[in-house]
Amino acid sequence: MTGVAPRLGTLLVLLTGTALVSVSIGAARIPVLEIIPALLGQIEGTSRSILVHLRLPRVVLAIGVGGALALAGTTFQALLRNPLAEPYVLGISGGAAVGAVGVLVAGLGARLPWAVPLGAFVGALLAMFLVLRVARAAGGSRLDSRVLILAGVVVGAFFNAVILLLLSIADVESFRSAIFWMMGNLSGATWSGNALLALYILPGTALLLALARPFDLLARGEDVAFHLGVRVERTKLLAYVVASLLVAAAVAFAGVIGFVGLIVPHALRLLWGPGHRLLLPASFLAGAAFLLMADTVARVVIAPAELPTGVITALAGVPLFVFLLVRRGVQ
């Protein structure tokens, strides 16, 4: 496994650079060189206020959400051995959306700012629990990856029907906010929300990174992994639950942001191969940088109004991915 450190270093530099640019540009420009003085309180006024209360929390949220989604995507692809696996493959997005849309349609969203993230989080957990239970019951106590995918699709379809039902009885105002939430955006970033998110993302990321070697072995089949000493069922259950918690936390604060968790792991695998000791940390860093770029574009392109970030990730991510795929096909 050559070149883990330099490659991660490259991504870290990319992420840092993106963060600086993202903090700097927007409706009000803050020169890069003034960022540190402003943070230290040497420059007072609106710049500092924009920086501390708007830009920085949003940059931190983008890093956390992008990293968590890409890391969860890599995990699901490794465990399910399915290239179409992504963070929402087990129905988590559907569950989260039912929670959030339910809160919005009930008219609680405007009065209680934490109600939407809470509803989304609870819905996501409910979906995860349901899918794992269905898969367990159908797979005879083992977590069969094909059964899991089917359970995810079916539970997701059910939740989608519930969402449509909720939307059909919603008034115009909550209909609009519900649709916006489902497209995914980071405009709700706050320091307290970020602190809560970090409670999930920091330990969850550390745990998944520690599973790199078992993931490498599981990619060769569960039989092979078992014969090489991996505790297969325990590892799978732990990884599914931790990755799902990461996704649930990310969705709670940012809505359903698509494509980051599908495209970033594939792009890195195409570029640098399938070894998880590089792939797992690299997908966190690259996912963070990618979502940060997309969010910056979403913020500035029609400023002072903004686009939903989830739309940009798809618009930019799909052509990039097609390029990588075709390039590899040609080689």
Partner: peptide
């Protein structure tokens, strides 16, 4: 074992 998948 008799055979094993080799996805990557």
């Amino acid at each position: 074992p008799q055979s094993e998948p080799s996805p990557f």
